[in-house]
Simulated scan of single mutants.
Amino acid sequence: MLRFWGQPKFSREPLEPIGYELFLREYNTGNWEIPTDFSKFTATQITDLLTRTTPEFPQKMKHISINLDIDQFVDPVFLQAFFAIKQQLSGIQLSIELTERTGQLNISPSQLVTAAKRFNDAGFYIILDDVSSGDNQLARVKLLNDFVHEYKFAIQNFRPFESLEDIVPNLTFWRDLAQKNQKLFTIEGVESKQDLLILSHYQADMFQGYALGRPIYLPTQDDPDSVISESTTCY
């Protein structure tokens, strides 16, 4: 069985939940697990699950993002599948997060640009996930800049560190680049009230992290109990 789990995305001002980042989870031997191979799921499986899950969302959770690895991102089948259900996601803004993970295929820069342009032209927001990590380095940001709407900076990728001050130069660089390029900027990995107090000075548009809300099970319309817990922590 396949379901989405969702981590709340919080706006900065006011600090309140506005949507979810969706994560696929697979039910095996009594436990929900992170799949070891995301490539085994077809575009149809993912979009079908999406259409059965979003109607159960609380009214205020309208900003939804879903992760695609680079192999999926450049595959026209995924774009076609998402576009086919776009009108069914009433009132939902669906963003595509291009992950930092290295794909199994040798993807050329021109293939990546073509895919980004197609998603953008089809009306999807594109987010570069975990900038400064994995493959989402400055070169990719520059390559896709015309089609990207948001940068996400993941603090958790730089832990452990003595204090947040250790990553301030990197954080400041990406915040400034987002402002220069007129992109939204999200900081994820907020794990404490102290983190939030410090990070609030960096003018992010959105926050994510365990201090604000952990990923929760998102039922579908056909689940026996289709009530989503709205319990989140808000400082």
Rank of each mutant, 00 (worst) to 15 (best):
I107H: 03
D37C: 06
A116M: 13
S229C: 15
R140S: 03
E150C: 14
Q80V: 03
S192Q: 00
A122W: 00
E230Y: 11
V74A: 10
F161E: 11
Y125N: 15
L212W: 08
L144M: 02
Y235G: 10
N120G: 06
Q93G: 06
F153P: 13
S226R: 14
Q221F: 00
D223N: 01
D176T: 15
H149E: 09
K86S: 05
T220R: 03
S200A: 15
K9H: 09
D75A: 15
N145L: 13
A211N: 13
A116W: 04
P8V: 03
H201A: 14
Y20T: 07
I127W: 04
Y20F: 15
T29Q: 07
S90L: 08
A81P: 07
R175H: 08
F57H: 01
N136S: 09
L177S: 13
T29A: 13
D195T: 02
Q156G: 10
I187M: 10
L197P: 00
R175V: 10
P109S: 06
S11E: 02
Y125L: 08
N31I: 05
D129A: 06
Q7K: 01
S90D: 13
I107D: 03
F161T: 07
Q45L: 15
M61V: 00
Q87E: 15
R3T: 02
D69F: 11
S226Q: 09
E26T: 09
I92W: 01
Y27Q: 13
D176V: 14
I96F: 03
V168Q: 08
T36H: 09
T233L: 15
F73V: 01
F10G: 01
D71T: 04
P169V: 00
R159Q: 08
S90H: 12
E188I: 10
F83W: 11
L105W: 05
A211G: 12
L171M: 13
T233Q: 10
P215Q: 06
S95V: 02
D205W: 02
L112D: 03
P14S: 09
E191R: 11
Q45T: 11
A84Q: 12
F147H: 03
T54C: 02
G123N: 03
F38C: 09
A211E: 14
L143Q: 01
A81I: 05
I64S: 00
I216C: 09
P8A: 07
S95C: 04
E100N: 00
L79V: 08
L79F: 02
I167G: 05
L112K: 00
S163A: 15
F161K: 13
I126C: 05
G6T: 07
L49F: 08
L2G: 10
D71N: 04
D121E: 15
L128G: 02
N31Q: 11
I107T: 04
A139Y: 11
N145S: 15
D166T: 08
P215I: 07
V141D: 05
S95Q: 01
G213E: 06
G123P: 05
S108F: 14
R214M: 07
T47V: 10
S200Q: 12
R140M: 02
L2D: 04
Y20S: 02
L24E: 05
